[in-house]
Simulated assay, not measured.
Amino acid sequence: MRNKASTAQTMVRLLEHSRYEVLPTATTEDKVLAHVPRDVTVTVTASPSKGLEATLDLAERLTGHGYAVVPHLAARMVSGRAELTEIVARLTGKGITRVFVPGGDADPAGDYPDALSLLEDLAALGHPFAQVGITGYPESHPTIHDDLTVQSMWDKRRYATHIVSNLTFDPAVIRDWVRRLRNRGVTMPLLLGIPGPVERTKLLAMATKIGVGESTRFLAKHKGTFARLAAPGGFTGERFLEKCAPALGEPGALVEGLHVFTFNQIAETEAWRQDLLGRLRR
């Protein structure tokens, strides 16, 4: 009984500290305003097809509406320190204090072949953001050893404040990955990446058509994963959290909340979170 209660407590804590990743499309602002409480942080992806302007513009507008917003500064989409300086001035001028720095999928536009190189320049510019997130990979590249992805996070530790995990659908992978991180001395807080309640049968088509965001590209490249998601009785966020919760509640796990990939199903995501919170609190 105690284990069940502890699992519920961990799930409530994570759900209460959720943030929503959204794609910068024409309807996103209205969807966020209609359905997302002001105490939920919103992150805005960066797309090579749309350019950083779409990300920055939406981030500024949502900030103006009272949200805490995290624009994604994909390193390979920034040409160099001059452009980065302009971006920093623009965002800080609007009161934006948080950013997320992935490498991004685009070919390098200039001086930043990876996230670390942009993070180093942010440090040289005086650490202008209070919170800087980096990507974590619970399931690393087939040809890159897990230790190298953990080493990458170690290399970035001086420049980042937290890690956002990429999507995975296996609780055992999450459990082992968190333990490996901590055993290697990576002590940054972690946000667990999970998908929202997306319409599974439409997910892959949407991913290939929109073509923006780490989340959509992941599913476009992993069709076997999509097949498991779409299958009856397949992945659900609730079951995933239930199975992850014991490991995420361990002392030293330092998992602070959820990073929810909404795929712009924003109303559905918030309804799912509130429903689950209501049931867990009974």
Results as ranks from 00 to 15, higher is better:
Tyr159Gln: 02
Gln151Asp: 06
Trp154Lys: 09
Arg182Thr: 02
Val178Arg: 00
Arg182Glu: 00
Leu148Arg: 11
Lys156Arg: 06
Asn166His: 14
Met153Thr: 05
Ala160Lys: 06
Ser152Arg: 12
Asp170Leu: 12
Ala160Phe: 09
Thr161Leu: 13
Leu148Gly: 02
Trp154Ile: 05
Trp154Ser: 02
Val164Glu: 03
Thr143Glu: 15
Trp177Phe: 15
Ala172Leu: 15
Arg182Gln: 00
Lys156Tyr: 05
Pro171Phe: 15
Val178Gln: 04
Thr143Ala: 15
Arg179Phe: 08
Asp170Val: 07
Arg175Ala: 13
Asp176Gly: 07
Val164Trp: 11
Val178Ile: 01
Asp155Val: 01
Arg182Ser: 04
Leu181Gly: 00
Gln151Thr: 01
Arg158Asp: 01
Ile174Met: 12
Lys156Ile: 00
Asp155Gln: 06
Asp176Arg: 12
Lys156Glu: 03
Phe169Tyr: 12
Leu181Met: 08
Trp154Glu: 03
Phe169Ser: 05
Trp154Gly: 04
Phe169Gly: 05
Arg158Trp: 09
Thr168Arg: 13
Thr143Met: 14
Pro142Trp: 15
Arg179Val: 02
Leu167Glu: 00
His145Gly: 10
His162Lys: 05
Ile163Val: 05
Arg175Ser: 08
His145Pro: 04
Arg182Leu: 02
His162Tyr: 11
Leu167Asp: 04
His145Trp: 15
His162Trp: 08
Val178Gly: 03
Leu148Glu: 03
Arg157Lys: 11
Val164Cys: 05
Thr168Met: 14
Ser152Leu: 10
Trp177Glu: 04
Val173Gly: 04
Asp147Ser: 03
Arg158Ser: 04
Gln151Val: 02
Asp146Asn: 13
Thr168Lys: 13
Asp146Ala: 15
Met153Asp: 00
Arg175Trp: 11
Pro171Thr: 08
Arg157Cys: 04
Pro171Arg: 14
Thr149Glu: 09
Trp154Val: 00
Asn166Gln: 15
Pro171Gln: 12
Trp177Tyr: 15
Val164Leu: 11
Arg180Asn: 03
Ile163Arg: 01
Trp154Thr: 03
Ile174His: 08
Ile144Phe: 12
Asn166Cys: 10
Ala172Phe: 14
Arg180Tyr: 09
Lys156Met: 01
Thr143Asp: 14
Asp170Lys: 12
Ile174Thr: 01
Arg180Ala: 07
Ser152Val: 00
Arg182Asp: 03
Val178Trp: 08
Tyr159Leu: 02
Pro142Asp: 07
Ala172His: 14
Asp146Thr: 11
Tyr159Ile: 04
Ala172Glu: 13
Ile174Cys: 07
Ala160Cys: 05
Arg175Glu: 08
Ala172Lys: 14
Thr149Lys: 11
Arg175His: 13
His162Asp: 02
Thr149Asp: 08
Arg157Phe: 10
Asp147Gln: 06
Ile174Asn: 04
Ser152Cys: 06
Leu167Thr: 00
Thr149Pro: 01
Arg157Asp: 04
Val164Ile: 07
His141Asn: 07
His141Cys: 08
Thr161His: 11
Thr149Arg: 10
His145Leu: 15
His141Glu: 06
Thr143Asn: 14
Thr168Tyr: 13
Trp154Asp: 01
Asp176Thr: 06
Asp147Gly: 01
Arg157Ala: 08
Ala160Arg: 05
Asp176Leu: 11
Asp155Tyr: 06
Arg157Tyr: 09
Asp176Cys: 09
